[in-house]
Write a protein that binds this DNA or RNA. Structure first.
Lengths: 162, 162
DNA sequence: GTTAGTGCAAACCTTTTGCAGCTCT
DNA sequence: AGAGCTGCAAAAGGTTTGCACTAAC
């Protein structure tokens, strides 16, 4: 259904819906989100071993320019690559745990309010908005405390606490 | 004043305040914000021709890890480099015009509200938050309309509007 | 005097480009 | 037929690393 819309959108711009592009678009929509170019390439390459990494980059660029996918950085948790997600849902922020890498999505009115205020305040026409939040998830906050305690103990090994 | 705090913060971590680091920190604080590594390098290099690009990268990494500077992407308007600003002011969003590249800063309560909601909703401990908004500034909206009109006319040159 | 930091060169990773051949329409 | 697209190889842009030398504490 979503895929249909995408296809229409591309066709209307005189962009060819080749076998490779269908594959990539499908994978982006199906597979859990936040794939980077390399990840998408690996998935695609399993299904079509001839498909080239360059085609992935070119297709992602195309979809991004066409407004069909959004580009994310996810706080560069793993490196400097970009991640992509289909522009399906409502606007949301990405919340990334800097310890375990888990990504949560947050929907909420502050995002819409922010958008409206920026438009009003600057007379700005918003095309893309991206909010990324980094920190520690509930689980990793606990883990970190343990890690810190362990590290402190390790340090005072030769001079144990009285 | 700000510089002092930064120096203290570094010293307390046993990090040496070398000539190069002082220079870079000063430049980051003085010069208008949103410098990327290369821009900072060029500024620094004029004052100390021996200072190496690598030192800039290493120092930026250090300052980022120490929470003294924030890293921005600015929607990758000019490329895939990162930009840096000292963590002086209150939290703000960056609003980037995708035509002229101008960067505005937006302060406003939606940002704090968002932060509080995310913390409450996920039990998340936020370390960094980044909001970047891309689109067209008031001025460029007008320019774009003119450009579009001109382009349309160019296209229909051989077949002018009746 | 130690330990941390610098400079230099070279490597690295991600992404882009040039070009010849292939493929949709 | 012809514009658009792909694959391959090679280059580019941004950043990191290994190592010997230097400087801060």
């Amino acid at each position: 259904m979503r895929a249909e819309a995408a296809r229409e959108s591309l066709k209307s711009k005189g962009i060819r819906l080749t076998r490779q592009r269908q594959l990539l678009l499908d994978l982006l929509e199906r597979s859990g989100k936040h794939l980077d170019a390399e990840g998408l390439y690996r998935l695609a390459n399993q299904l079509d071993p001839k498909l080239n990494r360059v085609t992935v980059y070119r297709t992602l660029k195309l979809l991004k320019e066409g407004g069909l996918v959004d580009e994310l950085d996810l706080m560069h948790f793993e490196g400097d690559q970009h991640y992509y997600e289909t522009r399906s849902k409502q606007e949301h922020a990405h919340v990334i745990c800097l310890r375990c890498g888990k990504v949560e999505e947050f929907f909420g009115d502050p995002l819409q309010k922010l958008r409206r205020q920026v438009e009003a305040h600057f007379g700005f026409q918003i095309l893309i908005a991206r909010t990324e939040i980094g920190g520690y998830c509930a689980h990793c906050q606990v883990m970190r405390e343990q890690e810190m305690a362990a590290a402190a103990e390790g340090k005072s090994q030769s001079k144990p606490v009285a």
